[in-house]
Design a protein around this nucleic acid. Structure first.
Lengths: 227, 227
DNA sequence: CGTGAGGTTGATCGCTTTCAACGGAGGTGG
DNA sequence: CCACCTCCGTTGAAAGCGATCAACCTCACG
């Protein structure tokens, strides 16, 4: 059974069209690994993650998969689409999403400047994340990738409560591997290595405790004096 | 000496704020390898490439570099920035850019809906390109990366004149390597391999002729029956 | 003609992948 | 209740692809 991940941030104020009129944004439940939409599907809606974690990915003919991004509660999925979706999207664990009619949203964006502005803001934030991800995919070693990934998750879960960095990994090793552009075996080996080094602890396979944040940051940036 | 690349597409209608009032967008000339701005610089302007090719990149502490994207005439640089630039930008070859005050543009976006809409359109197109690029970086082999890259350039230079795919490579092997997440040696070896296979011809190091487009497409998608 | 930057090619190394076996957790059915 | 099965994760051994190190080439330019 997949654990429902702790909500990372409240989405209360993030998406301004929540309250717009009585346009009842329809909510949808997905089980772990269930698809929300596939590459090529007609793209009539955008989606806001309400609970759980989703992932956007692209696949090659032979099945190789690259996860573009994980979407946490409050995140918006589907921007950047034309009439058809340019990537696939599925639930990493049990999740809930709210669907938003695209046409209506774009109409709002034309009429209400702040909605358009907010959309642009979201799109550019996504661009920034993807730039970081490209640097990771193209130029970092396996250990650097993994350390960067853990830091990202730790950062996302800030404010989860205690200041000590503890968080769940809602995604499988396969998901992590497909996000970082490596294999599950390499993910597993390097997690073990981090554990042996005392940088992290893994009480369960889905639970991470960061013991030495400084060292993890060094490892993420390639200060290879670390090991 | 770097050859000035043939303009890929006219920018006449692409960017709507050309003509907005007498706000004289300042034009700027850059020599090959000259920086337009660096990561961390204050971001007061966006830039439209007028001529030549620019590249956006990020670097790690130890100098490893990942080129995020190449910007051709008509392309807009600098979206997705907050107060400071999140990446560096420099000229691949001699180039001309037009700087656009960011504050004014955003003001326009608030006032004129079509400007905001166009900006969002540009941002989402960029997102789509980056998704493709991530798939390439994370999951493709060296040969697949290179074949995909050549196809992209061929596609960009469509309408350059003849329908035969011939185009210049304004960027050095180092630039190509840093865009594809590999080394210059591997780029060079695989270009040679493509030449030997009769898929492409390289009359000069900066000039590419695609001889067998079908095979190149197979190679780009990993139909590895090809070699 | 000398020089230096960019490009190619060869030889070797090593990190990551691949192939394979094993272990644990959860679910199901006898 | 336990045997069994499947999925997921870990670990080991071997292979391979791309990186690294190094030499050489080409060409533009002073």
């Amino acid at each position: 059974m997949y654990m429902s991940p702790t909500p990372i941030e409240t989405s209360a104020t993030l998406v301004p069209w929540h309250n717009t009129a009585g346009r009842s944004a329809h909510e949808q439940r997905l089980h772990a690994h269930e698809a929300l939409f596939c590459e090529g599907d007609e793209a009539g809606f955008l989606y806001e993650v309400v609970d759980g974690v989703m992932c956007n990915y692209r696949i090659l003919l032979d099945g190789r998969r690259q996860i573009i991004s994980f979407a946490y509660p409050g995140d918006l999925i589907g921007l950047g689409h034309t009439e058809s979706h340019r990537f696939s999207c599925e639930a990493v664990c049990d999740a809930r999403v709210r669907s938003i009619p695209k046409a209506a949203l774009l109409r709002d964006a034309q009429g209400q400047a702040h909605v358009g502005h907010r959309l642009l803001e979201i799109a550019t934030a996504e661009l920034a994340d993807m730039q970081e991800h490209q640097l990771l995919l193209g130029r970092k070693s396996a250990m650097e990738k993994l350390a960067s990934f853990l830091l990202m998750l730790a950062c996302r879960s800030k404010g989860e409560g205690a200041k000590t960095a503890r968080f769940n990994l809602p995604m499988t090793r396969t998901d992590i591997a497909d996000y970082l552009g490596m294999t599950i075996e390499t993910v597993s080996r390097n997690l073990t290595k981090l554990k042996v080094l005392g940088v992290i602890d893994l009480p369960q396979t889905t639970r991470v405790i960061i013991c030495d944040m400084d060292k993890l940051e060094e490892l993420a940036e390639g200060d290879d004096a670390a090991f």
